[in-house]
Every structure is written in C-alpha cells, then in structure tokens.
Amino acid sequence: MKPTLLAIDTSTENCSVALQVDNTVISREMESPREHSQRLLPFVQAVLEEADIKLSDVERLIVGIGPGSFTGVRIGVSIAQGLAFGAELPVQCVSSLDAMALEGAQNETTDWVISAIDARMGEVYWRAYKNDGEQLVTFAPAQVAKPEHLNLSEQLTEYGYRTTESVGFVGTGWETYAEQLKATAPVAPRSLACRLPTAAAMLRWAQQYNEAAVAADELEPLYVRNEVTWKKLPGR
C-alpha cells in the first residue's frame, strides 16, 4: 500500500495541489499567479474531502520550494509550514525544475532534458538532466543565467553529451527566450509538452528520488538568487 501524501506548489503561475491515497491521485490546479494565497487552502480542502480523509490522515507533505516567483515560493513554503506544524507532518521538498523535467520525460523520451523557468529580469532558472533510461541524472544545482550567456552546448558537453543524443526542453523559459536558448543548444531541442510544474509531478519525484524529509522548522525556499532572504515563522 502506498503512503498517503499531500503535495502543494505555488512556485510559478500554477497553483497546484495533489493528494495520493493508495493508487489514486486527486488533484486541483489553476494558473492564477495573483490568487495563490486565496486558492491554495481551498484546493487542499477539496482534495481531502473528495478522498474522504482529514489532514491528520496524511503521512507526509510535499512542497514545491522553487525556484520561481519569489512571492509564489514564499506563499507555498509558508502555507506548507503551517500545515506541517498543525498536523505534525514531515515535509519533502521538491524543486520546480525537477518536477517539470520528470513530467516532460514521461511525456516523451529524450536523452537529455533542459528545464528552464522565466526568472524575469532577462534571466532563466535552469537545470540539465541526463535520462539514462531508468531515472534522470543531475549534475549541478539549479542555476540562474541570462539566456544569451547560457552556452548549453558547452554545458552539456561537460556533463558527457554526445552528438548523437537528443535534447528535450520544458518550462516557460523556453517560451520567453526560445530563440536565445535554442541558439546555444548542441542540437535542435524539442518540446516535451510541459510549461509549468504540477503538484502531481512533485508527488512522483519525491517518491522516485527518495527526497529526504525535514521538519517544518527546517523548511527553506530555493530562490537561487542570493540577494533574496527568507524569514521563518515568528518564534521559529
């Protein structure tokens, strides 16, 4: 029997919740970048009611910690802390870039996946993954860069890319900066049909890659940009 897991994510324009009960996944999501704080908890309540369980029946909470919108990341992490403290839940943290890469790889198989989110200010958050047929292998943490300065050919070659291998892409970074990013790729990359992360993909990543659980007071956002600071809940 699979564990009962609840995943939430507001790190990008997508407000997303997914609940796993045995082999069933119940989800709610909506692109509503300015309404995350109003929508997230009603989505949580809706999936719990549909499954006819309470938050106390959940075994672990999974939260998207970014990178993405600073405001969205803060909302998701703050609400995750509140839920985890209230129900004494351990928390697994999943990157928005990782969730998109996994979903894209399940949509279509390529040898490499490049996940990129529009970071505003003329930059993208990005990460590269090698698909070895069983899992996605990572080589470096999430990074931020100007797309015209991001030499994907050089980066992938350092990670072991061979000229016969295919490259796929996911994320809004490829929409906003398609020309610049594609120009730096070693081969014409193809879309893997994933624009934004989902809580359902975070459920899969957290289990497949055995993300370590942390206590609510250890939960930290993944901003990538160093100048942004995070304030924990008062008294924590």
Results as ranks from 00 to 15, higher is better:
111 D>Q: 11
111 D>S: 07
111 D>E: 14
112 W>R: 06
112 W>E: 01
112 W>S: 00
112 W>L: 03
113 V>C: 02
114 I>F: 12
114 I>V: 10
114 I>T: 04
115 S>K: 03
116 A>M: 07
117 I>L: 12
117 I>D: 08
118 D>V: 10
119 A>R: 04
120 R>D: 09
120 R>K: 11
121 M>V: 09
122 G>N: 02
124 V>E: 02
125 Y>I: 07
125 Y>W: 15
125 Y>L: 09
126 W>R: 12
126 W>M: 09
127 R>N: 07
127 R>Y: 14
127 R>G: 02
127 R>T: 06
130 K>I: 06
130 K>W: 15
130 K>G: 03
130 K>C: 04
131 N>R: 05
131 N>P: 03
131 N>K: 04
132 D>M: 01
132 D>W: 09
134 E>T: 11
134 E>P: 04
135 Q>H: 12
136 L>F: 12
136 L>S: 01
137 V>L: 15
138 T>V: 10
138 T>I: 09
141 P>C: 07
141 P>Q: 10
141 P>V: 04
141 P>A: 05
143 Q>M: 12
143 Q>W: 15
143 Q>K: 11
143 Q>F: 12
145 A>M: 13
146 K>F: 11
146 K>D: 10
146 K>L: 08
147 P>Y: 14
149 H>R: 13
149 H>N: 13
149 H>A: 05
150 L>Q: 02
153 S>P: 04
153 S>F: 10
154 E>T: 10
156 L>A: 00
156 L>T: 00
157 T>G: 02
158 E>L: 13
158 E>G: 13
160 G>A: 02
160 G>R: 03
161 Y>W: 13
162 R>K: 15
163 T>Q: 11
163 T>C: 06
164 T>W: 14
165 E>M: 06
165 E>W: 13
166 S>T: 08
167 V>A: 00
168 G>W: 08
169 F>Y: 15
169 F>A: 00
170 V>H: 09
170 V>R: 05
172 T>N: 08
174 W>L: 00
174 W>H: 01
174 W>D: 00
175 E>V: 12
177 Y>N: 02
177 Y>W: 15
178 A>H: 14
178 A>M: 10
178 A>G: 03
179 E>G: 08
181 L>P: 07
181 L>C: 08
182 K>R: 13
182 K>W: 14
182 K>Q: 13
183 A>V: 05
183 A>T: 07
183 A>W: 14
183 A>C: 05
185 A>K: 06
185 A>P: 03
187 V>T: 06
187 V>N: 02
187 V>D: 04
187 V>I: 09
188 A>K: 07
189 P>V: 01
190 R>C: 05
190 R>H: 12
190 R>Y: 11
190 R>D: 05
190 R>F: 10
192 L>H: 07
192 L>A: 00
192 L>P: 03
192 L>D: 02
194 C>I: 12
